[in-house]
Write a protein that binds this DNA or RNA. Structure first.
Ligand SMILES: [Mn+2]
Ligand SMILES: [Mn+2]
Ligand SMILES: [Zn+2]
Ligand SMILES: [Zn+2]
Lengths: 138, 138
DNA sequence: TCGATCATTGAGACGAGATATCAAAATGAT
DNA sequence: ATCATTTTGATATCTCGTCTCAATGATCGA
């Protein structure tokens, strides 16, 4: 089995979405693939001087909507993107180094689901964020 | 027992905080006292033409830090303030009318507390938001 | 392969939300 | 009343985006 290149995966994702495969989108995606942790759109933009700012934001939105990226809000309110590795999950955010880690917790989901029944109105979704000082920063 | 006026309560809060009692702060606080639900800083500012924008924001931050106000993020990322009626709590946010309601749920807190023990690093806090369509909007 | 068609791009304007600057004004301890 | 210290607010600046619109480029049917 051959390892699929980033470009191949991006191409098939874009096709699946019915979006065109373009140079700028590939360049954004390549940079994203090299990233770990969380990053701001502005930082990404600075690393891509040959891609327009609007296109960086557009691609970020495209990939977030597609479930490839995740947009999170740091405790101070500033937005961060990170690669979305799993389906539904929540975030562990280090207040010190701003690393965003994903977590899932079945008991938590079960409880939130039970709570939905008790709540007046229709529950559409939820967001849980844990603010931590990560092992590395301790 | 006399009912304490808004001004009296603001004055004692500011004293407690070691901040000066000023006209602009009173004007912001008076308007806040008349509010229900959530509101944007910008809207507040427009209702206070005689208070500088910077001062509106500064006062909002002062009162948020003091625990009098609560800053929440709507699903679309736009910030909203609301009066913080109880100590620790979470938010029920109507995606339709943007109303913010507080809730507390002891089982949820207990679970989150238990989870903290399992999580690597030091848990500093958490945020839980439920996105709903409220009864009124249904 | 070639156009025609339609999506995409990017420069730049615009907007919300918020903070930085700093001289002038207000506060309150004495 | 004095005066050190805080606070104010006009204005500039910043981040995070979105909008516009002419130019460019991808895709597909012929
Ligand atoms: Mn995620
Ligand atoms: Mn609240
Ligand atoms: Zn960390
Ligand atoms: Zn509603």
């Amino acid at each position: 089995m051959m390892t699929t290149s980033v470009d191949d995966r991006v191409d098939s994702l874009l096709s699946k979405l019915g979006s065109r495969i373009t140079g700028p989108r590939r360049r954004v995606a390549r940079l994203l693939a090299s990233k770990q942790g969380s990053f701001s759109a502005e930082a990404l933009n600075e690393e891509l001087p040959d891609v327009g700012r609007a296109t960086v934001y557009r691609t970020l939105k495209l990939l977030s909507d597609a479930g490839v990226l995740c947009k999170t809000t740091l405790p101070d309110g500033s937005p961060r993107y990170s690669i979305d590795h799993s389906w539904h999950h929540h975030h562990l955010i280090c207040s010190s180094c701003r690393t965003v880690e994903e977590f899932r917790h079945s008991a938590l989901e079960r409880l939130l689901c039970e709570m939905s029944a008790e709540i007046p109105g229709q529950v559409l979704g939820h967001r849980v964020e844990l603010y931590v000082t990560c092992m590395h920063c301790l």
